[in-house]
Structures are given as C-alpha cells and as structure tokens.
Amino acid sequence: MPLVNIDNVHKYYGDNHVLKGIDLRIDAGEVVSIIGRSGSGKSTLLRCINGLETYSEGGIIVDQMEVTDDDSQIRKLSKSVGMVFQHFNLFPHLTVGQNITLAPKLVRKLSAEEAAETAREVLQKVGLQDKFDSFPGELSGGQQQRVAIARSLAMRPKVLLCDEITSALDPELVGEVLKVLETLATEGMTLILVTHEMNFARDIGDRVIFMHQGKVWESGEAKAVFANPQTPELQTFINAVL
C-alpha cells in the first residue's frame, strides 16, 4: 500500500476545471517534485493531500486515512502529513520554541517537557538550536523557513508537503533551506515538493511529476525526465526554466 494514494481526483473552482483526474501513488521514503507552469494545478493538488482544499471527485488516502475536510479527520491527518508554506506562516506573536511546541502539546498531548525536548531536537536538525527563544521577526527568511520545517517535523509526520518553500527567499538564502531538505531526504523522509528549484528536483528528487492544464502530463525518474522529455510541453518548460 503506497503512503499517498491519489485516485482519479477532480477539482473545480466554479466552472474552472483545475484538476482533471489525477492518479498518483507515492511510496514511503520517496522524494517527489511536482513541476509545471503557474496555473497548472500543482499547488492545488498538494493542498488537497492534507485537506486544505477539498476535491470534487475521486479519492485521496494518506497513511490509510481518507482525506476529508472533516475537523476530526484533519486533526488525525496532521499527525501523518506536515506542510511547509511559501511564506513560512510562523506565528509572529510566539517564540520559535512556542511555535514548535504548541501543536505537539495540543494535538499529540505531549507534556511541556517532552514538547520542549522535541523542539530542541528538531531545531538541532535544521541547525537553529540557539534560536529557541527568538521571535520569528528577529530571524532571516531562510532561518524562518527552517523553523517552519522544524515546526512540521515536531509532529513526527510521515510525509512532508512543501509548497514552493524557497520562492519567497532571497537567492542567497535558498541554499540553507534546500540543504535541510536534502538531509531529510537522505534520512528517508517522504517529501512531496511543488518547486521551481529544477536542480534540486533533478539531483535530489527520485521522481518528477510535470503538471500541465490540470493533468499529470509527464512523469518519471527525475534525471531521465530532465534529460529526455517526451512531450513538447515539458520540452518547452524545461528550456524556459533551465
């Protein structure tokens, strides 16, 4: 049984048919990059995987749980699926430590000590153990995004969804975030990334999904897809971004 099973998913925004029958199976430990033009439906697909967006038809099963927008289901899913956003979405009124410990305490019912212990561990992993008591506003964009990754990791997810997590960063800060992702990948974390970092998708990713007009247009082993695109649409896209 794959960790993420997406079965013939359709989604409409009004009359706009944004996902046209997506089928996708992702196994534990895979690093999958979803690439494509803006408007191709890649972010929408990612947001469907943890219930942030509803879908109209088909089914999504993650870690043997059906994805619905039901409150209790979303709470259960949060223990298996983490998400990191383009704009970090850290809680600005809480310290880094509080940002990370809040959900483990409320949702996973950890004690304050256990949660703090977890927070220190995940901060260590992203190389920010000295920022426990800082506020997000005091950190650089790259550091904030690493805290956001740590916050997701503290929930012990089985899969991490990354929605263009380096797109809002200054170029010189992109590297430190990608390095964290690379570490996670080598440790066996399942990653699904919507990304414009083509080098990362090619070198670190196992598989690349090229989306076009709401469909999985082309997919395959990462290096092969870039080296040998089969469709003119992917050819054009690769020429435009590389």
């Binding site: 943890n50 219930g51 942030l52 409150d71 979303i74 709470r75 259960k76 899913l77 949060s78 223990k79 699926v81 983490g82 998400m83 956003f85 979405n89 850290l90 809680f91 809040l102 959900a103 409320l106 949702v107 956001a148 916050r151 997701s152 929930m155």
Partner: peptide
C-alpha cells in the same frame, strides 16, 4: 492554514 495543518481545531 498553518494552524490547521498542525491539527489545531477551531
């Protein structure tokens, strides 16, 4: 959205 992804209820 971040709160929902972390499993917090309303």
């Amino acid at each position: 959205e971040a709160s929902r992804c972390l499993g917090l209820n309303y």
